[in-house]
Amino acid sequence: MGELSLPEQLALTAETVEQNLAHGDQVHAPRPIDHTAAFRARRAAVAAGDELTAAGYRVDGLYRRLLTVWLEFSAMTAVDHATAAAFTEEVVGIVRRHGGRYDGWGGFLVPPDPA
Rank of each mutant, 00 (worst) to 15 (best):
residue 97 R to Q: 12
residue 9 Q to T: 01
residue 114 P to K: 02
residue 93 G to D: 05
residue 58 R to Y: 05
residue 89 E to P: 09
residue 76 M to W: 12
residue 62 L to S: 01
residue 62 L to A: 02
residue 88 T to N: 03
residue 59 V to E: 01
residue 7 P to Y: 03
residue 62 L to P: 04
residue 41 A to V: 11
residue 31 R to P: 10
residue 61 G to M: 05
residue 115 A to N: 03
residue 6 L to S: 06
residue 77 T to D: 10
residue 61 G to C: 08
residue 86 A to I: 14
residue 19 Q to G: 09
residue 66 L to D: 14
residue 41 A to P: 01
residue 83 T to D: 08
residue 40 R to Q: 15
residue 65 R to P: 01
residue 4 L to N: 05
residue 90 E to P: 08
residue 70 W to R: 02
residue 53 T to I: 07
residue 16 T to N: 03
residue 42 R to K: 12
residue 42 R to S: 07
residue 38 A to W: 05
residue 8 E to V: 06
residue 104 G to C: 09
residue 60 D to Q: 03
residue 114 P to M: 06
residue 91 V to C: 04
residue 41 A to I: 07
residue 47 A to M: 11
residue 36 T to Q: 13
residue 73 F to M: 05
residue 107 G to E: 14
residue 7 P to E: 11
residue 12 L to I: 08
residue 93 G to C: 07
residue 59 V to I: 15
residue 109 L to I: 14
residue 27 V to M: 11
residue 92 V to R: 00
residue 4 L to V: 02
residue 54 A to E: 12
residue 107 G to V: 15
residue 1 M to W: 12
residue 90 E to N: 13
residue 73 F to G: 00
residue 32 P to M: 13
residue 23 H to M: 15
residue 89 E to A: 13
residue 1 M to Y: 12
residue 29 A to V: 15
residue 88 T to A: 01
residue 66 L to R: 03
residue 53 T to L: 07
residue 10 L to Q: 11
residue 82 A to P: 02
residue 66 L to H: 05
